[in-house]
Simulated assay, not measured.
Amino acid sequence: MILCPMPRMILIVDDDPHIRQLLVFALDKAGLETIEASDGEAALALASERAPDLVVLDINMPRMDGLEVCRRLRAESPVPILFLSSRDDEIDRVLGIELGADDYVVKPFSPREVVARVMAILRRTAAHAPSVETGRDLAQGRLRLDLDGWRALWDRTDVPLTVTEFQILRLLVSMPAKVFSRDAIIDRLHGPGFAITDRTIDSHVRNLRAKFAREGGGDVIETRAGIGYRLGACAGA
């Protein structure tokens, strides 16, 4: 198992103590620090107090479910979120991604799979952490990506993105003339062979479009039927 190069803090949120214990053991073994919450209110309090690097969040919890926790976290922070769900249907998965989650795992799950997905998200986050260099930007027309600050701007207005959304947009802006298939986007984000569906990529793209449309960005990503996605022409306007 690949160990994380430096301790990162993971908040595990699940009302099942057995699942929390299982994940704590697996993530600790991978060199990650963990904190736990058994309900949504405790999770929000811990997230505010401890500022975790990633949240593993169960959808089906009493009183405040994971979807509401995700909404409230997203209102305050871009912290990466990995959903756990016992409902194996595409609607729940797509809804989770559209709310701002970065990935999901369906119960029953393998702890090794959870660790692998957590590590993949953390690697993407680390790739965009602020560095000692400054001024590294990617820009096309009115769209600018601040790579050091992990910020997306449209006409100088910040557009808050999740880790995965930023990664997808960065890929498209870096090669604006290229059309990327869904498989190519998955390979760039996660590496070849990573189990994620085309529908998940479509959900991230819809979310990106909606966020930029609210700022007057129009269709920032263009769909090429039967092929994939590329940067929209309006980004260069």
Rank of each mutant, 00 (worst) to 15 (best):
L153P: 00
R144V: 10
D137M: 13
D146R: 02
R144G: 02
R117L: 10
R144E: 05
S131Y: 03
D148T: 12
W154L: 05
T125C: 14
L153A: 01
R144M: 06
A129V: 00
G149I: 05
A126G: 11
L153F: 03
A152L: 03
Q140K: 12
L138M: 15
V118P: 01
P130K: 10
S131L: 05
A116F: 08
P130D: 10
W154H: 01
R144I: 01
L153V: 01
P130S: 05
A152T: 10
G141W: 04
V115L: 10
S131G: 15
A116I: 04
I121F: 06
D137Y: 13
S131E: 13
A120N: 08
P130I: 10
L143G: 00
R136Q: 15
A139K: 14
L147Y: 12
L147E: 13
V118W: 02
R151P: 01
V118L: 03
R144F: 01
M119H: 11
D137V: 13
G149R: 14
L122N: 09
L153Y: 00
I121H: 03
A129C: 08
R124F: 02
L122W: 08
A152G: 04
V115R: 12
D146H: 05
R144D: 01
D148F: 03
V118C: 02
E133N: 11
G135K: 12
D146L: 01
V132Y: 05
L143Y: 05
H128E: 06
L138I: 04
G141N: 05
G149Y: 06
R136I: 13
A127E: 15
H128Q: 07
A152V: 12
G135P: 10
T125Y: 08
L122K: 11
A116G: 04
D148K: 05
V118E: 02
L145I: 07
A127M: 14
R124D: 01
R123C: 00
T134R: 15
W154T: 00
V132N: 10
A152S: 06
M119C: 09
A127F: 07
D148V: 07
R136G: 07
A152N: 06
I121N: 05
V115E: 14
R117Q: 12
L122H: 08
G141L: 12
R136E: 14
W150F: 13
L143F: 09
W154G: 00
L138K: 13
Q140P: 00
D146K: 02
A116D: 13
G149A: 15
L153T: 00
G135H: 08
R151S: 03
A120P: 07
H128M: 02
Q140Y: 06
A116W: 05
A126Q: 15
L145K: 04
R124V: 06
Q140E: 14
R117N: 10
P130M: 10
R151V: 11
A127R: 09
H128L: 06
L122D: 02
A126I: 04
R117Y: 05
R117A: 11
R124K: 12
R144Q: 06
D148S: 13
